[in-house]
């Protein structure tokens, strides 16, 4: 059996189950406890679990993120909420030097079982500083793992896997998805965990592979319906879900079937997840390509504020359809 939950509720259910499973799991961040979460992901958890397990921190990302990393070295399993992933910049040293490198620099003596989670998206009329989309950035640091779920079920299954992982996992959510609903398996049917490193074919087609992660997948699915109805093009829509580790096999399988690829990425065009995926495809499946690999990325400027055109800067179903049609 499954129920319909919002993405936010599914995440919360995953967090709640992990809090119950392991007494060393602790949730920390700005407004996560008494305020019930800036985006209400942690709503009710403080009331249920109390001060020790759900901890409000001051607005002090370098301090509390670093504190979580230090605690994780001792065996605590902190789940740190960044109110926006955009705030990574003030904790960058902690995120990329301490969490990512301490295992390596210690010759494998230390590991950091920590999760950093929060929304990482544009499209909320808040301007450039609050609209960074850094999954590609962090996936570029060996030692880190990154995932970005698109649906409520994936959000729940992946957050549980992230918390159980013994390496640092940077978990990128999306405020535009928090209210989105979807089917999520009932807890009474067993422990629902989706491992990192496994992509999910969200729609099966034969003519073109649309590959992305996070909210791009929701757009891709909508675009795929338009392509089918208006243009007779049947698209595979592959949701990477996990950026690092990356399910390269699933990417190649889809490409080898359709021979055409459009990558959708809410990051900018220079570098990033889609650039990496594009490289992997040309490297490993060059002979299967009937057309150049195309991308739909966020238009290459800092995120604009204006609500009138913001969604045009980001990938959207219209831009995806147009890009697929250029493949001929």
């Amino acid at each position: 059996m499954s129920r319909t939950l919002t993405y936010r509720e599914a995440l919360r259910e995953g967090l709640d189950e992990e809090l119950a499973r392991d007494p060393n799991v602790v949730i920390m961040g700005e407004e996560v406890a008494q305020y019930n979460g800036a985006y209400k992901v942690t709503e009710g958890l403080w009331k249920k679990w109390g001060d020790k397990r759900i901890v409000d921190t001051p607005i002090s990302e370098a301090g509390f993120i670093g504190m979580g990393i230090g605690a994780s070295m001792l065996g605590v399993r902190p789940v740190m909420e960044l109110m926006f992933w955009s705030f990574h910049s003030v904790a960058f040293d902690q995120l990329v030097n301490n969490a990512a490198c301490v295992r390596y620099m210690s010759g494998g003596l230390i590991n950091c079982p920590i999760v950093m989670r929060g929304p990482a998206n544009g499209g909320t009329n808040v301007g450039a500083t609050h609209s960074h989309i850094p999954e590609g950035l962090f996936a570029a640091f060996p030692g880190l793992k990154v995932c970005a779920p698109a649906t409520p079920a994936d959000a729940k299954g992946l957050i549980k896997a992230a918390i159980r992982d013994n390496d640092p996992v940077y978990f990128m959510e999306n405020t535009r998805l928090y209210g989105m609903t979807g089917e999520v398996p009932d807890p009474t049917d067993g422990d629902f965990v989706i491992p990192l490193g496994v992509a999910d074919l969200k729609r099966e087609g034969k003519d073109v592979s649309i590959i992305g992660h996070g909210r791009s997948i929701i757009h891709a699915l909508e675009a795929a319906e338009t392509l089918k109805e208006k243009h007779g093009i049947d698209a595979d829509v592959l949701d990477l879900r996990s950026i690092r580790p990356l399910d390269v096999e699933a990417i190649l399988k889809s490409v080898m079937k359709t021979n055409r690829v459009v990558l959708v990425d809410e990051s900018k065009g220079f570098g990033g997840v889609s650039a990496m995926v594009s490289h992997l495809i040309q490297d490993k499946a060059f002979d299967y390509l009937d057309a150049p690999i195309k991308r739909v990325t966020t238009m290459d400027a800092p995120a604009i504020y204006s609500q009138h055109i913001e969604d045009e800067q980001l990938p959207n179903p219209r831009r995806i359809v147009e890009k697929v049609l250029t493949l001929g």
């Binding site: 670093g66 605690a71 001792l74 065996g75 605590v76 301490n98």
Partner: peptide
């Protein structure tokens, strides 16, 4: 000073555990 939040975390961890 990159270690100063980590030291804090060690103290936090001791107390938590």
């Amino acid at each position: 000073a990159g270690q100063t939040p980590l030291g804090l975390g060690l103290g936090y961890g001791l107390k938590y555990l």
